[in-house]
C-alpha cells in the first residue's frame, strides 16, 4: 500500500486549487497542487480534505494515478464541508491528509472479465481504475462500464464517458432514472444493463461504487447471473474521522472502513451492508 507522503498522517498538507470545473449540478472536480511533494495513490484510495474553518471530509481520488499532474477530486455538495469544498476556486487553499485506505484490487483483475458498476457520484472513485484498465487494456478480458445516474444532466465526466464509448475494446452503457424526449439513451435502473454485456461470470470481477442501495441491488443482480461473492468488490462510504484506524469512528468489528477499506470484497462485508448506521 502507498504510504501517506506526510510523516504525521494527522497533519494536513496545504494544497492549492489549480483547476475547478462544474461536472454536474452541485458536483465539482478540483485539481489540487501541493506545495511540497505530490502524494502518490492507487485507484480507490481517498484523501481527507479540509475546508479551513468548516471541517474535514473523506473524498476519493478521481484522477489518473499515472499522471504526475496534480491530484484530482470530484465532490458533490451535500452538507457543510462538501459544499465549502465545491465553493473553492482556482488559487484557494485547502488541507489534505492521505492517501488512505485499500483501493481496488487492480492486480487481481489481470486475465479476468471486468465489470464496473457505477451509480451517480460513484463513477468518480472508479475513474482511476478505469484509467488503469484502459492503459493496460491487453492484460484484461472483456471490460464493461455500466453507469446509472439520475437524469441526463447528472452524467459525470460526460465527454470522457463518450470517448470511452467510442473505443471498440470497452463496452460502455449509460442509463438514467428518468429523462425527457431529448434523451436518446437508455432509461431504467443500472442493473437492467447487465443483460447487454457479454462476460464469463465464473471469471469475472465486478467493482461497484455508488449509493449503498444501488450496490445492494447490484450485488443481487450480479449474483443472479453467476458472479460469485468473492468476485465482487464494493467501495463503502461510511462516515469516518481520522482515516487511519485510530479513532474507531468507522469501526465495525473487526473492520475499519478507513484502514481496511474503503474497498472490500463482498463476502467480507455482507454483514455491513445490512446495517443502517455505522
Amino acid at each position: 500500500m502507498v504510504q501517506p507522503a506526510s510523516h504525521d498522517p494527522m497533519v494536513p498538507q496545504v494544497m492549492r486549487v489549480a483547476q475547478a470545473q462544474l461536472d454536474a449540478p452541485d458536483v465539482f472536480t478540483l485539481k489540487l497542487e501541493p506545495e511540497a511533494d505530490l502524494p502518490r495513490f492507487t485507484p480507490g484510495q481517498f484523501n481527507m480534505l479540509t475546508a479551513f474553518g468548516v471541517g474535514e471530509s473523506a473524498i476519493s481520488v478521481s484522477g489518473d494515478p499515472a499522471s504526475g499532474d496534480g491530484i484530482v477530486h470530484t465532490i458533490r455538495a451535500v452538507g457543510a464541508v462538501s459544499r465549502a469544498l465545491t465553493e473553492l476556486r482556482v488559487g484557494d487553499s485547502l488541507g489534505l491528509r492521505g492517501p488512505f485506505g485499500v483501493g481496488w484490487p487492480m492486480e487481481e483483475l489481470y486475465g479476468k472479465d471486468v465489470i464496473l458498476l457505477a451509480g451517480g457520484i460513484g463513477l468518480a472513485p472508479l475513474r482511476p481504475a478505469i484509467y488503469r484498465l484502459l492503459a493496460e487494456r491487453e492484460r484484461f478480458g472483456a471490460v464493461a462500464i455500466l453507469y446509472g445516474t439520475r437524469s441526463p444532466a447528472d452524467i459525470l465526466f460526460r465527454s470522457e464517458v463518450e470517448s470511452w464509448r467510442q473505443r471498440l475494446d470497452v463496452d460502455v452503457h449509460v442509463t438514467v432514472d428518468h429523462a425527457d424526449e431529448s434523451w436518446h439513451g437508455q432509461v431504467g435502473v443500472v442493473t437492467t444493463l447487465l443483460p447487454r454485456i457479454a462476460f464469463d461470470p465464473g471469471r469475472t470481477v465486478a467493482l461497484l461504487c455508488g449509493p449503498e442501495i444501488m450496490m445492494r441491488f447490484g450485488v443481487q443482480a450480479l449474483g443472479s447471473v453467476g458472479v460469485p461473492d468473492e468476485g465482487m468488490y464494493l467501495s463503502m462510504e461510511r462516515s469516518m474521522k481520522c482515516g487511519i484506524g485510530l479513532c474507531g469512528h468507522c469501526q465495525f468489528s473487526p473492520a475499519f472502513v478507513c484502514k481496511d477499506g474503503p474497498v472490500f470484497r463482498y463476502d467480507q462485508i455482507r454483514y455491513l451492508l445490512a446495517l443502517k448506521e455505522l
Binding site: 452541485d26 451535500v78 451509480g119 451517480g120 457520484i121 446509472g148 445516474t149 439520475r150 447528472d154 432514472d177 428518468h178 431504467g188 435502473v189 442493473t191 437492467t192 455508488g210 449509493p211 442501495i213 444501488m214 441491488f217
Partner: peptide
Amino acid sequence: LQATRLQVLDIYGKP
C-alpha cells in the same frame, strides 16, 4: 416493481 422502487427512492438524489 423493483426498478420502480429504486426510482421512487431517488437514490442518486440529494439526501
